[in-house]
């Protein structure tokens, strides 16, 4: 199976590569349009800031490429936020796969949210074999609202979307690659879609 990780300026590819390796998969890290279009599965990671990430994607024509992909894609963390319509982080227009806004957590909460929080209202094959209230690892200051594409929710002051799904696009706000055996199972589920 060909698994491609989208290479761009906000990709934290090391952890996700290691997580895939632990499942016996050797991913290809690439921004090559042909390879990305023909890979069996795509992972769209992301650590960093939304506007500079979007600028880079546009400059390298990866924005339209990602929108047009037909195979299963998994966005992680900033990758998930970039798949939404708009982010308050430097008022950034994002890819618009999910018709949702990304907002900043408001004080008095500690920002960023760092640590293990539970995922509820699980409703996707991405979570096959995973119970409601399992814990996964989050690091983020911005969150996606709840909408019809929400497949998991988490509470941090407000209830927000901790995972999304629409057609071939899947996304998690948490880091499955850093979430112990629960996270490994989610990645395995994605690979087996």
């Amino acid at each position: 199976m060909n698994i491609a990780i989208v290479k761009y300026n906000a990709g934290n590819v090391c952890s996700i590569t290691n997580a895939l390796n632990r499942l016996g998969i050797e991913p290809v890290i690439t921004d090559n349009a042909e390879y990305l279009s023909t890979a069996d599965k795509i992972i769209f990671p992301g650590v960093g800031e939304a506007s500079s990430a979007m600028q880079y994607l546009k400059a390298h024509h990866l924005d339209n490429l990602i929108r047009d992909l037909k195979q299963p894609l998994l966005g992680i963390c900033l990758g998930m936020q970039l798949l939404c319509r708009f982010s308050e982080e430097n008022n950034t227009d994002c890819l618009g796969i999910f018709d949702l806004n990304v907002k900043k957590f408001s004080s008095p909460l500690k920002i960023p949210q760092i640590g293990w929080n539970s995922i509820d209202n699980l409703s996707s094959e991405l979570f096959k074999g995973i119970e409601n209230d399992e814990y996964v690892y989050f690091v983020h200051s911005y969150y996606a609202e709840i909408g019809k594409n929400t497949i998991a929710t988490t509470d941090y002051g407000i209830t927000y979307s901790s995972a999304l799904h629409k057609n071939n696009f899947y996304a998690t706000q948490f880091h499955p690659e850093k979430s112990g055996i629960v996270g490994a199972k989610i990645i395995e589920n994605f690979i087996n879609l």
Binding site: N18, N21, R22, V139, E177, K178, G180, G183
Partner: peptide
């Protein structure tokens, strides 16, 4: 460590 450990 990064290859073998699946928590932060």
């Amino acid at each position: 460590i990064a290859k073998n450990i699946n928590i932060p």
